[in-house]
């Protein structure tokens, strides 16, 4: 009888789903699913989609995070008064290394240098003879700034949608306002309690748990929508941790993505949301002088997720900006 019981238990466990297997808790990535639009380069397989005429000027989109994905930027394809970004441009959407539906990597393979090489490859692939416009939201705006500081010749312009702090020093100034880790908040206790049931011991489970954290109200000052939440495919927990860690020296925020930005004299469009009290209008006014030629557009009635919640109001000034730089 005990042997029979043991056999039943073992058979039952064998029939259980594997939490580490992609496709169960989180979607498969491009390297595992050939139906996902993809491109392989630099030793990785990326989730990449393009929209528009392949011969048109190229806009490369850089999603937020780090560790996010481009799903929340797809409404930027919506028409504004009958005109769409992709009518006159080729839009290159992609999930950054180790995020979204792109292939997963160990933490030591997610570095600033790898991110730099990945973006260079995409620019050379889709626009080998002409500089591109970078359009980055939040972390994507930081990524764009770092790239511009290192490769200004590859960039014709930039739309920086409420970028996070471009230096560690700026981050230190605002970090107390940035995160609200109220120890008695229900979402935080839900998150830490969930770790006693699902451990972040592989990519699938770590990404899954990060999704739960993403539902929490970690940054109330950003005033993101609770009724029209930004969608995502799959968080990149390891990539997020690696990128954050690389910006730290002895536990202190030490990145500086502004070195050399003064060499970039082409016009840059900053966008800021009216409601974000942390990295909104006032904060972006402090960041704009890192560039030689920047102007600001405010997205009224929106929080930090304005590319998702206010796509028309976001795209309209982008179209005007592109016209103004002849792109």
């Amino acid at each position: 009888m005990p042997k029979l019981l043991l056999a039943v238990v073992l058979l039952s466990l064998a029939a259980c789903l594997d939490p580490a297997e992609d496709g169960n808790l989180v979607p498969r990535t491009a390297d595992e699913d050939p139906s996902i639009p993809q491109l392989s380069f630099n030793g990785s397989t990326f989730h990449v989609e393009t929209f528009g005429d392949p011969t048109a000027p190229v806009i490369v989109l850089l999603h937020g995070g780090p560790g996010g994905d481009y799903r929340a930027m797809l409404r930027l394809r919506n028409p504004v008064n009958g005109a769409r970004l992709e009518d006159r441009h080729l839009l290159v959407y992609w999930d950054q290394r180790g995020t979204g539906l792109s292939e997963r990597h160990p933490e030591n393979e997610i570095t600033y240098d790898a991110y730099d090489r990945d973006l260079t490859f995409l620019i050379d692939q889709f626009s080998p003879r002409r500089p591109v416009v970078l359009l980055g939201h939040s972390w994507g705006g930081m990524y764009a700034s770092r790239y511009i500081s290192m490769h200004p010749e590859k960039v014709a312009g930039a739309v920086l949608m409420e970028p996070g702090p471009l230096t560690g020093a700026l981050f230190s100034e605002i970090k107390s306002e940035m995160f609200d880790l109220d120890p008695v908040s229900e979402w935080l206790n839900d998150y830490v309690w969930a770790q006693s049931i699902v451990s972040p011991d592989d990519h699938a489970r770590a990404d899954y748990l990060r999704g739960l954290g993403g539902f929490g109200d970690l940054q109330p000052g950003y005033h993101t929508s609770k009724t029209d939440r930004e969608p995502f495919w799959r968080h990149g927990a390891v990539a997020a941790a690696a990128i954050v860690a690389e910006g730290m020296v002895d536990g202190q925020p030490a990145w500086n993505f502004t070195t050399g930005l003064d060499r970039f004299t082409k016009p840059v469009l900053f966008q800021a949301s009216e409601l974000n009290t942390v990295i909104g209008i006032d904060f972006q006014k402090r960041q704009m002088p890192f560039y030689g030629n920047a102007r600001l557009e405010v997205i009224a009635g929106a929080g930090h997720d304005f590319p998702w919640t206010k796509p028309a109001e976001t795209v309209a000034p982008v179209l005007s900006y592109l016209d103004s730089i002849g792109f």
Binding site: C16, I197, D201, R205
Partner: peptide
């Protein structure tokens, strides 16, 4: 559904 071995502390 049922998942095996979701976590350990």
């Amino acid at each position: 559904g049922w998942y095996s071995s979701t976590g350990g502390t």
